[in-house]
Nucleic acid binder design. Structure first.
Length: 445
DNA sequence: CTGAAATGCTC
RNA sequence: UAUGAGCAUUUCAG
């Protein structure tokens, strides 16, 4: 009974989203004035709640957890309370909770965690407005978008490098999420959404501020990293870059300068005048109130120097066999380092477990997940290296555990881990990088 | 084939 | 220790 109700609610929301997408697609300049009622629909709020709950995320500053909502308050009354607040225009968001998480480069990233109720309303708004913006977004944008992934962006770069666009502008925006100006961002929202109440909701989230040491800190720039709509807003704001690029036809014949963007990370690939196209991008970003990180933004000639994007390293080199130029991409050194660190950590933590469990439940999922992300491109050598690193690390661990010196490798050859303990075979995922065999099936195990 | 749950990986 | 997207594996229900 409940399952049936959930299903129809899902269907109704999907139908609504489809309608909105088609309406926006058939009329590219249409601005939508009646959306708030859709945000308030109980189906939409229910789907929004399900999406938020599925992450099992931490509570915000009000300490309200999913357990409290489901066991004490009840989901239905929690949602109808939100619904009446919205309809009576009484809803105001609470400030976000400030949490810092370490980034890969050692610096810290500030998160802003909204309370669960605010996350639900944000998810509801996202359900309603995302289809409208999806209809406008350009093909060169790959980050945070439904049915788009990193592999497609990598493939696009590969394509342009093979089409002799060897000049690469590798751009890095200075703390993008925190520097988006609220006023201009809201203008971007209004290109499609002119329902005042919906725009007001978004404005309130931007202005809600962050709770830091018992004080509310308010900003005029930035969208909280941790909010449900933040990725959509971030994408929407940089859409100006994509659309300007298209309007000036920089991606077309005389220019031949192609943007590939993944959220705030983007490269421009061109065959000539990279300085000019960097300057053009800078002009757009200036108008948006954004700045490029001068130290990290650079122009490279891909034939002479590799560059990294989305965890991969790209290099254009003459083929050892035929001598013609070919593009290669494979896990970047950083990615190699971080997966080794992860293997090392789980093996150290699980050294008192029995080997099959450690391999099956801890090591294999890491190898499988990592391998599936990097299996495109030319990763065979790097997969082999990680596979060897894994057997070696396990071997060292076993030798220490059994207090044996020497001969560990002879007792535990790589095949021993694979054949008797079911260690995941990384190289079963990799395909060779040759033109002819790119579409070959993975090597059978 | 479509949902739900769990785990893992990338950005 | 949040958010979005994508991918993979397992389990369950139709």
């Amino acid at each position: 009974m409940i399952a049936k109700a959930e299903n129809t609610s899902l269907e109704r929301v999907q139908v609504l989203q489809r309608k909105l997408y088609l309406a926006a697609k058939t009329n590219p300049t249409r601005k939508f004035g009646v959306l708030y009622d859709k945000v308030c629909q109980i189906d939409v709020l229910w789907m929004a709640y399900k999406q938020v709950r599925a992450n099992k995320g931490a509570p915000g500053i009000d300490q309200q957890t999913f357990e409290v909502i489901e066991k004490k308050v009840g989901v239905a009354s929690f949602l109808t309370e939100i619904q009446t607040e919205l309809m009576e225009k009484r809803y105001t968001p609470l400030p976000v909770k400030r949490v810092y998480i370490p980034k890969a480069d050692g610096t810290q990233r500030p998160l802003g965690i909204p309370v669960i109720a605010d996350r639900v309303v944000q998810a509801a708004v996202k359900i309603v407005i995302e289809p409208l913006f999806e209809a406008t977004f350009k093909d060169c944008s790959y980050g945070f978008r439904p049915r788009k992934n990193a592999q497609q962006a990598l493939r696009e770069i590969y394509k342009w490098l093979n089409f002799k666009c060897h000049w690469v502008v590798d751009a890095d925006l200075k703390s993008y999420f925190d520097t988006i100006p609220h006023d201009k961002l809201l203008l971007s929202v209004r290109t499609r959404v002119i329902d005042r109440s919906v725009v007001k909701l978004i404005e309130m989230w931007l202005k809600a501020g962050a709770m830091e040491e018992m004080k509310i800190r308010k900003e005029t720039t930035g969208t909280p990293q941790g909010g449900v709509i933040s990725p959509l807003l971030a994408n929407l704001y940089l859409h100006w870059l994509d659309s300007t690029w298209e309007k000036k036809a920089f991606g077309k014949r005389p220019h031949d300068a192609h943007i590939v963007r993944y959220a705030d990370d983007f490269v421009i690939l061109c065959s000539k005048r990279p300085e000019f196209y960097l300057e053009q991008a800078k002009k757009v970003l200036d108008r948006l109130g954004l700045t490029l990180n001068a130290k990290k933004t650079r122009i490279v000639n891909a034939m002479k120097e590799p560059f990294d994007f989305l965890g991969h390293r790209f290099a254009v080199q003459p083929s050892k066999v035929t001598g013609e130029l070919k593009t290669f991409y494979y896990p970047a050194p950083k990615a190699m380092k971080s997966v080794k660190q992860k293997i090392r950590d789980v093996v150290r933590k699980g050294q008192h477990w029995d080997l099959p469990t450690l391999v099956k439940e801890k090591v294999n999922p890491i190898l499988r997940g990592w391998g599936n992300y990097f299996k495109t491109g030319n990763s065979r050598k790097h997969f082999l290296s990680i596979a060897n690193y894994t057997t070696w690390t396990l071997c060292i661990m076993l030798r220490k555990k059994h207090k044996k010196r020497g001969k560990g490798w002879r007792d535990h050859p790589p095949s021993w881990f694979y054949d008797y303990h079911g260690l995941f075979k990384l190289y079963s995922l990799s395909v060779t990088g040759d033109e002819g065999s790119r579409y070959a099936r993975p090597v059978p195990s």
